[in-house]
């Protein structure tokens, strides 16, 4: 088992895995606390259309996925801000239509595409050297933005109305947050897969929430759960020869149920 760590592909996967675990968990804290899980899932599925288009046009699918996810994230935010359509409705529309577009595009391509399959379900082997650098760069960008706007993101997550009354730029901050979600989805895409990426955003944060009532601790715990899930999941998937994304997500789900049973809040609720 140890010698697997000397393989270049596994080293790449682990570096990417640690970063993905942290970034997904950190963004997941906001997603979970603001009740935005569905937006996360919607943006993740939108990346399918982007990836498929990338293959069709012969451009790097990650680049086309970023473009697509950002467009959909901003589209959802803009439509729901305009007030005529509820946010979950906007997500529902984009969710299905971008998937449909992806399916249509696949139909236009000749034959069956193995790479596309790895995007859907995640694969350790699919991670190239360029992907690692892209993951490092995007992770640094997301974490830096979270660090810079930490207090503002906390305020709009806890009490957006008062934040607006006091003059914080809540629209900008909301757009920033959906942008961060979109970037996070793209970062995690190759390892976890399009279908499962939103679970890796939501589950570690939800697990952390069971164990603490401090914001900072929730974020640190979520990041730890995220790392354990991705690193553990990658090693397990190699050992068991299973799909990496599914293994990672099931491991994080296991952690979530452990946290749920050990939760002091749950014990309190049972009294």
């Amino acid at each position: 088992m140890i010698e697997v760590l000397t393989y270049t592909f596994m080293q790449r996967a682990l570096v990417a895995g640690v970063l993905i675990g942290v970034v997904c968990a950190v963004i997941g804290v906001y997603v979970v606390l603001r009740g935005m899980s569905f937006i996360g899932a919607g943006i993740a599925h939108a990346s399918f259309g982007g990836v498929a288009l990338g293959f069709l046009l012969g451009i790097n699918p990650v680049i086309s996925a970023i473009t697509f996810c950002l467009a959909v994230a901003w589209g959802i935010a803009w439509i729901s801000r305009s007030g005529r359509i509820k946010e979950d409705t906007a997500v529902g529309i984009f969710f299905a239509s971008t998937m449909a577009l992806g399916i249509l595009v696949i139909g236009l391509m000749e034959g069956y595409n193995v790479d596309l399959f790895s995007y859907l379900f995640g694969s350790i082997l699919a991670i190239t050297r360029e992907d690692v650098w892209l993951t490092v760069g995007l992770s640094a960008l997301v974490l830096t933005l979270v660090g810079l706007f930490f207090k503002e993101l906390l305020f709009i997550t806890f009490d957006p109305e008062t934040a607006q009354v006091l003059g914080l730029p809540v629209n900008f901050l909301h757009f920033l947050l959906v942008t961060l979600i979109a970037l996070t989805v793209v970062i995690a895409l190759k390892v976890v897969g399009i279908i499962l990426v939103s679970a890796l955003i939501v589950t570690p944060a939800a697990a952390a929430w069971q164990l603490t009532d401090r914001f900072g601790r929730m974020m640190i715990l979520a990041a730890l759960f995220g790392i354990v899930s991705t690193v553990g999941g990658l090693l397990l998937s190699y050992a068991l020869n299973t799909a990496s994304g599914a293994t990672i997500v099931l491991l994080s789900t296991t952690l979530f149920f452990l946290a749920l049973f050990l939760s002091p809040k749950r014990r309190l609720a049972w009294k």
Binding site: L33, K151, E152, L154, F155, F158, D159, T162, A163, L166, L168, W209, T212, D213, R214, F215, R217, M218
Partner: peptide, 13 residues
């Protein structure tokens, strides 16, 4: 998950 102090400090943001 937030403390009373963190809530009050938001008034300064």
């Amino acid at each position: 998950p937030i403390t009373a102090g963190e809530v009050v400090l938001m008034g300064r943001y």
